Measured scan of single mutants.
Amino acid sequence: YETDHQDYCEVCQQGGEIILCDTCPRAYHLVCLDPELEKAPEGKWSCPHCEKE
C-alpha cells in the first residue's frame, strides 16, 4: 500500500524502526521523542508537532 509518510525520523533524519504520525506525514524513532516511548503506541497516534496544534 502506498503512503506519503517520510521514511526517516523527523528529529535525527535517520531511517530504521520509526513510528508514523496518524495526522501528518512525519515519522519518529521512539527514542527521539521527548519524552521517549518504550514501545509503539497502540491505535491512533499524533506526533508532538500535531499535539501542539
Rank of each mutant, 00 (worst) to 15 (best):
Y1L: 05
E2P: 06
E2F: 11
E2D: 04
T3D: 11
D4C: 13
D4E: 12
D4P: 09
D4R: 12
D4Y: 03
H5W: 09
D7S: 04
D7V: 12
Y8Q: 15
Y8C: 03
Y8H: 15
V11A: 12
V11K: 15
V11G: 15
C12M: 02
C12S: 00
Q13S: 13
Q13A: 09
Q13C: 08
Q14P: 00
Q14M: 12
Q14C: 03
G16L: 14
G16Y: 14
G16E: 11
E17L: 08
I18V: 04
I18H: 11
I18K: 13
I18F: 09
I19E: 09
L20C: 09
L20M: 15
C21W: 00
C21M: 01
D22T: 14
D22G: 09
T23A: 02
T23E: 11
T23M: 13
C24F: 02
C24E: 00
C24W: 01
P25D: 10
P25C: 04
R26G: 10
R26N: 09
R26E: 09
R26W: 06
R26Q: 14
A27E: 02
A27F: 10
A27C: 08
A27I: 10
Y28E: 02
Y28F: 04
H29V: 00
H29L: 00
H29F: 00
L30K: 11
L30Y: 14
L30R: 12
L30A: 12
L30D: 05
L30Q: 13
L30P: 03
V31C: 04
V31S: 07
C32L: 00
L33R: 04
D34M: 03
P35I: 05
P35V: 11
E36N: 06
E36L: 08
E36C: 09
L37K: 09
L37H: 09
L37R: 13
E38P: 14
E38D: 10
E38L: 07
E38C: 05
K39F: 04
A40C: 03
A40W: 03
A40V: 10
A40M: 11
P41Q: 02
P41H: 12
P41N: 14
E42W: 04
E42A: 07
E42G: 07
G43E: 11
K44Q: 09
K44D: 14
W45G: 08
W45A: 08
S46C: 12
S46Q: 04
P48C: 11
P48Y: 10
P48W: 10
P48Q: 08
H49P: 10
H49I: 01
C50N: 02
C50E: 11
C50L: 02
E51D: 07
E51P: 03
K52A: 06
K52W: 08
K52L: 05
K52G: 11
K52T: 15
E53G: 12
E53K: 06
